[in-house]
Simulated scan of single mutants.
Amino acid sequence: MKEAVIGFVLAHPDDETFGSAVLARELADAGHRVVLLSATKGDAGQSGPLGPMSRGELAEVRVKELAEAAEILGIREVEHLGYPDGKLGDVPAEELSARITDFLNRHGVEIVVTFPEDGGNRHPDHIAISRGARDAVFGGGSTSVRKLYYFLFGPAAEGRRITFRLDSRAGWDVKRRALLAHRSQRTVIEKYFGDLETTFPEELKYESFALAWTKEGDPAREEASLADFLAGG
């Protein structure tokens, strides 16, 4: 099977693990190249069990946490745009799109995974990075991209057309370890996933993905996994 390049275009460190850890690891294990662009360093988040710290200190911590999680998930390269956390919507759309396009072109990304148009939970940074990714793909500046997917975390998948979903139970140990790598966010993470040491969150057992656009034709179809397309070339 030809190696494909899949690019996750997201807003914060830990976004990759919340909604797509099982997918990232599955793709890496199949021999594909997975790369990640994070628009912010998460400097406006909580520092949780690590105690008080400045925004600059938290940014440094979260960059290291993301690097650790990425290694667990088989993500080969991580890049940061370094925009202020919580302020991504203030970045000019053309600037954000251009920087995403540059990332896609340098890596030869064929498949993009990002948030849905509403960010999945109305988070303004999620909405902004989704818009930027769509602009980069649809603007014609990146000729390598052939498909664009939205990942839908938990309740965000309700009522939406799902192209494929992955059961997290088989890859729970990997997802759990990647979540634990984001130590500063432990309190927030456990609000969603419960005690990572003892429980499996049945209500979040699926990672769901919707095909938003494909260069090859109508995206209104079902797939068993993203690998269906990759195997077909």
Rank of each mutant, 00 (worst) to 15 (best):
R161Y: 10
D173M: 07
A4Y: 01
S208V: 05
E223I: 02
R176F: 10
S142M: 01
G120E: 05
G232F: 06
E60T: 13
V78I: 13
E110C: 01
R25Q: 08
L96M: 12
D218H: 02
K87A: 15
S47K: 09
A220Q: 13
E117I: 11
V112F: 06
I111R: 02
K205H: 09
L196S: 02
R146G: 14
G159P: 09
G86W: 01
T40M: 11
G31I: 05
F193V: 10
G82L: 00
D15F: 04
H126T: 00
F103M: 08
I100F: 01
H80T: 03
A128F: 05
A98F: 01
F229W: 12
F115L: 13
T101H: 04
Q185D: 04
V34E: 07
H107I: 00
A181W: 02
L196Q: 03
T187E: 10
V188F: 12
R55K: 15
V109C: 12
A136V: 03
Y83D: 02
K205E: 14
A227P: 01
E95H: 00
I162W: 09
G159W: 10
K191G: 14
V145N: 08
S130V: 13
F103D: 02
L23R: 07
D173K: 11
N121G: 10
A220Y: 13
G132I: 09
K41Y: 01
T163Y: 09
I189V: 15
E117P: 05
I189W: 08
S54P: 07
A181V: 07
A39R: 02
G31T: 06
T163L: 14
K64Q: 14
H12E: 11
A231T: 01
Y149N: 04
E60V: 14
A178T: 01
K41M: 14
G171M: 07
M53A: 13
I72F: 05
L148Q: 07
F209A: 00
L148W: 07
V145M: 12
A136G: 10
E202K: 10
A70T: 03
N121T: 08
P92A: 05
H182Q: 11
G194H: 01
K147Y: 11
A21I: 08
W172R: 07
K175H: 12
T114P: 07
I111H: 02
H107R: 14
H80L: 11
A156Y: 05
L66K: 14
I111T: 08
T101M: 09
W213C: 11
R33P: 10
E68K: 11
A67I: 11
V188E: 12
Q185V: 00
I72R: 09
R177M: 04
K2D: 10
P84V: 08
R146Q: 12
L148K: 03
H126G: 11
L211P: 05
A133T: 15
K175I: 08
G194L: 01
F103P: 04
F115W: 11
A44Q: 13
T187M: 01
T114S: 15
G141N: 11
K2L: 13
K205D: 00
I127P: 04
K2M: 12
S208Q: 11
D43K: 09
D135P: 00
G19N: 01
T214A: 15
A212G: 04
T143F: 06
D29G: 09
H123Y: 03
K64C: 00
D43T: 12
Y192V: 10
R165C: 04
V112W: 02
K87G: 03
T163K: 07
S38N: 02
E190G: 06
M1F: 13
F138R: 15
A224R: 14
